[in-house]
């Protein structure tokens, strides 16, 4: 089975830790993706999602400086944009309504991210 890919995907990054956001950005660019953001807090994330309807996928840190990212996640799910939560929490911290959303434990591995939100190969 050919691998999924993020090539030319516009990927939103929501991550409050600058260093991690930056690292993700670099890794995504290395994977051929176009990074939207990154943004560090929920308000910025929501604003960005509402302003940009060309988002193909999103990587969301579950905990943004004490605020949970879920309102942003709901907006994206509504648009059927594939998302992945990155989190340091146990699974129990994620409400059950997001049980189908992929999760990636920090520190994240790009391989897993791509598996979660990458486009399936065409054909």
């Amino acid at each position: 089975m050919p691998d999924r890919s993020l090539k030319n995907c516009r990927v939103l990054v929501v991550e409050d830790e600058y260093i991690l956001a930056q690292e993700l950005e670099i890794e995504l660019q290395d994977a051929g993706a176009i990074v939207v953001g990154p943004v560090a807090d929920l308000a910025d994330a929501v604003a960005l999602i509402q302003a940009d309807d060309g988002i193909d996928a999103a990587i969301l840190d579950a905990n943004l400086g004490g605020n949970m990212v879920f309102p942003a996640a709901e907006l994206l799910i509504e648009r059927e944009v594939p998302i992945v939560f990155t989190t340091g929490y146990d699974a129990s911290a994620i409400p059950s309504r997001f049980s189908k959303v992929a999760r990636c434990d920090k520190p994240v591995s790009m391989k897993k991210i791509i598996e979660a939100i990458g486009r399936p190969p065409k054909g």
């Binding site: 991690l20 930056q22 690292e23 340091g88 929490y89 146990d90 911290a93 434990d105 920090k106 520190p107």
Partner: peptide, 16 residues
Amino acid sequence: DELQHRTRNLMGVVRS
């Protein structure tokens, strides 16, 4: 929960 969050973030930071 918080500790886990911090630790994992920290690990990410350390790695970076």
